Simulated scan of single mutants.
Amino acid sequence: MTAFPVRLFGGPTALFEYGGLRFLTDPTFDEPGDYAVPRGRLTKTARPAGAPGAVDVVLLSHDEHPDNLDISGRALLAEVPLTLTTPRGAQRLGGGAKGLADWEAIELQRPGGGTVTVTGVPAVHGPGAREDVEPITGQVVGFVLTGEGLPTVYVSGDNASLDAVKQIAERFGPVDTAILFAGAPRFDVLFDGAVIVLDSAQAAEAAGVLGARRVVPVHYEGWAHFTEGRDALIAAFTAAGLADRLDLN
């Protein structure tokens, strides 16, 4: 099946057209700067690579951290008909936001007829069990997109759990395109410095588990707390024998 283009804007933000609808992941369009957060500070280091234009659906993994939804991103949500996110996030955002619990699905009408199904899937924003991680880093959701005659697309969100990836693969694998949040972000004050989203080696392992034909990494550049970038991704996927599946745009 022909791969569709994915446009990257930096950080976790990507735009793709699927089934005639334009989907945008975790909108971050602010200029570089610092953000105060409960346990310290986040620093954005790079400008966004343009603007997205019209968007039909935002796929928002979570609303609580500015490296996933910044000031400009919040303003953009008001212009988008539908934002799919966590159940708690939808309550906070209101407006056109709808929460998806794990394995909950919504059908979206395609402009030319037919539907796209978006299913919320598990994500754990840190190491260990979800019940231990969620009170600290918050509720996160990933997404799987399917439709008749369309490729299967997985958007991981801020997930660090390979067990969650295995559950998703059991239900939806093999995946045609996996948009994997990577970058090995870590903080000394959280989980003893353990990664809170996939590192490069884990992203390669996730690609193998999913049987992904193409992997588009996001969330690995543009912020100071990302500790692994493009070179680490290339090295990890090469070591895993999956370099041909890596799409770095």
Rank of each mutant, 00 (worst) to 15 (best):
T85F: 07
F172T: 08
V80P: 01
M1H: 12
L21M: 05
G157T: 03
E131H: 11
A182I: 04
R7Y: 07
P32V: 04
A235I: 14
A194Q: 09
A207T: 12
I136T: 11
G112Y: 01
Y220V: 05
A97R: 03
E79Y: 07
V37Y: 05
T86M: 03
D70K: 13
P12Q: 05
A240Y: 11
D34N: 06
Q139G: 10
R92S: 15
A54K: 15
Q167E: 15
A14P: 00
L76R: 04
H219N: 14
A232E: 09
T137P: 00
T152N: 09
K166H: 15
F237W: 12
H125N: 04
G89F: 00
E205H: 12
R171G: 04
V58S: 00
G89S: 00
G89T: 02
T227R: 13
P66E: 14
Q91W: 15
H62I: 05
A90L: 10
R92P: 13
A239V: 15
V116H: 00
T28D: 04
L21F: 06
G147E: 03
I71A: 15
G19E: 01
R214V: 03
I168Y: 06
L84H: 01
L84W: 02
G113Y: 10
T2K: 13
V58L: 05
A36V: 06
F23M: 03
F23A: 02
G50L: 06
A182D: 12
H225N: 12
F172Q: 05
A236H: 12
V118W: 00
V141Y: 00
V121E: 01
F226L: 03
A201P: 07
Q167D: 15
P151S: 09
V118Y: 02
Q91I: 07
N249C: 10
D102K: 15
G193K: 09
A184F: 11
T177L: 12
G183N: 05
I179N: 05
I196M: 07
R110A: 09
A164Q: 06
R47S: 09
T146I: 13
H225V: 14
V218R: 03
T25C: 01
Y220W: 14
E228W: 08
D176T: 10
E170V: 11
R47I: 07
T238F: 09
V55I: 08
V218W: 02
F226S: 00
G147N: 10
I179T: 02
D67N: 15
A224G: 14
T43K: 08
A204K: 10
F191T: 07
E31L: 11
T2W: 11
R213A: 14
Y220F: 14
R88F: 10
Q167G: 07
P185R: 04
P122N: 10
G147Q: 08
A90D: 11
K98I: 01
T86H: 11
E79S: 14
P111H: 11
G120W: 01
S200K: 07
A206D: 03
Y154F: 13
G222V: 05
I234R: 14
D67S: 14
H65G: 01
A232D: 15
G120R: 01
Y18T: 02
P48N: 08
V6Q: 08
A203Q: 13
P48M: 09
A14G: 04
Q139F: 01
D192G: 12
L15A: 10
V155L: 08
H225T: 14
L42K: 02
L8E: 10
Q167L: 15
R110V: 09
D132V: 12
V37G: 03
P151M: 13
A123D: 02
